[in-house]
Nucleic acid binder design. Sequence first.
DNA 1: GTCTATAAAGTGATAGAC
DNA 2: GTCTATCACTTTATAGAC
Lengths: 216, 216
Amino acid sequence: MTRLSSEERRAALVRAAVRVIARSGLASATTRAIVAEARMPLASFHYAFRSRDEMIRELVAFVVGGEQFAILASLRPGVDIRSAIRAGVQAYFDLVASEPGREQAMFELLHYALRTPELADLPPFQYGSYRRVVVEALLAGAAHGGVEWSIPVDDLARLAVALTDGLTLGWLADRDDAAADRLMDSMADALAAFARPSTETAPSASTAARLEEHRS
Amino acid sequence: MTRLSSEERRAALVRAAVRVIARSGLASATTRAIVAEARMPLASFHYAFRSRDEMIRELVAFVVGGEQFAILASLRPGVDIRSAIRAGVQAYFDLVASEPGREQAMFELLHYALRTPELADLPPFQYGSYRRVVVEALLAGAAHGGVEWSIPVDDLARLAVALTDGLTLGWLADRDDAAADRLMDSMADALAAFARPSTETAPSASTAARLEEHRS
DNA sequence: GTCTATAAAGTGATAGAC
DNA sequence: GTCTATCACTTTATAGAC
């Protein structure tokens, strides 16, 4: 093994931890369970990480960064904004339904971080990251649909994230697929109600302006 | 002490556990921490409860039952439905903001129950209970405001619960009061959009009919 | 450098003295 | 009935053999 294995070991432990947490919950993700999943001896854990919390910090950054392509990948140009939103929400929900443990893990990590002072910076990072993805999707959707948003896109993103969180929690609680389907219809209606026909002749210029505004 | 103290002890331990969980999280709510909070010897815990999970089961029923008066108490007859919704959401949020640990505790209990097969019936009970309260509030609000809902009230309640869950999680993550305020405006707009002028001449009759329908 | 073996501090649950 | 004392086990983290 080369010296590079130190960095690789950290990554392997993080990936193993993600699997353990998704399968059995954060409380079951002991250092023993993680090294067993990664097929390593116990001491390797503290060889790679100073503490369990240090690994969790790296794990959150890893998972939050990776989770966000599904929605963006579901964007389809040329459809009306209500359909685009409905499809995007469906894509997110399909991801949740196909791997519920993964989404449960994200919530468990949030609540653990909220209770751990050393990890206090993770929740704002996690939700800031969610909103940034949704802002991009909303701007792209508006541009494709020839509409503009009647409230600041940051505020609309907050609403959309709140809705998806609520959708997820409600479905995790009772696993009612039909109810989730109806809820997604309502979500699409509610969000699309904030769209109005674009006043700009060049939609892309409007989009660029909002992007600039968002960067401030 | 009379024989009644057995029942009282259970209640005292549950109340102590609620305080410990709200203050320090579910993971810190060990049997030792709970009996210390209740000023009891350790053995009293297993004298009152067969196991820690048995107490958590009783705790969830206790807290879910008690949490629900704030929204209903905020109902004000005679105002338009959008204002009524906005005020109800604000009342809920004020409760969350005044005691964030309590709401965090509800989420932690949900996720713990989702990971504990013996407690699998608690999440549906918890969210069913939330929705039942919101259904009542929505029906009362519609009756007072002279409107009716354009989608089944059960579905609208699901949307409302999703929104409040998302509002709570987002605020817990970054504690942005101003953003929460704007989000509550959007929530009220979104929910009020599902109201339309009542077609019935007697709103109370319509309300009674829907209540009957809901009981089926 | 790597890992076995162990330390030190918790945990839920009980046996047995009062 | 009540509670002290303790069991059996698990946890994170590390010392020290290889």
